[in-house]
Amino acid sequence: MEKRIIIDHQLLQIIVERLCRQIIEKHDSFKHSVILGMQPRGVFLAERIHKKLQDILQKEIPLGYLDATFYRDDFRRKDIQLKANETKVPFAIEGKNVILVDDVLYTGRTVRAAMDAMIAFGRPERVDLAVLIDRKHSRNLPIQANYVGKGVNCLDSEKVLVELTEQEGILEDNIWLMSKMTV
């Protein structure tokens, strides 16, 4: 495996700041806006965006965690079973402007499952999607992100590895692109 950094700690801070500004531009007063981080790895980014937004706007913004494991369409079609994570949505989704947050947008299937999971809590007014990495040209479903940290052109054989300091054993924020060595 060959790996190279596509986003380092410094760039990540700039990107989170920019994403927040873009979200504010569209969400204006944040009166009915809530943030939902997608389990397992979208939650860390969601927490960072949430903190930054609260710093900038100086107001409380609701934050929740959404696990889409039980809504996935690949159940019984995969060899390995995915582990479920905690869902915590301590507010009503009904009528809200939801900002879904995930780390990597790839096939779009996780986002589809997450939207189903979200709708179990009520009918949102509008749903936006914010992602750190958009793996372009690899969607299986007609799903696009409204806010993109960085678009990446990569092959299916390549992998995007997200390392954030909130994860266990990670000391430094780094986003890597891993590709199989070509001989």
Binding site: F70, Y71, F75, T87, D116, A120, F121, G122
Partner: peptide, 11 residues
């Protein structure tokens, strides 16, 4: 999940 308003998942 069974304590939500919609107590059902499609698994």
């Amino acid at each position: 999940i069974i304590n939500r308003p919609i107590k059902k998942v499609p698994s």
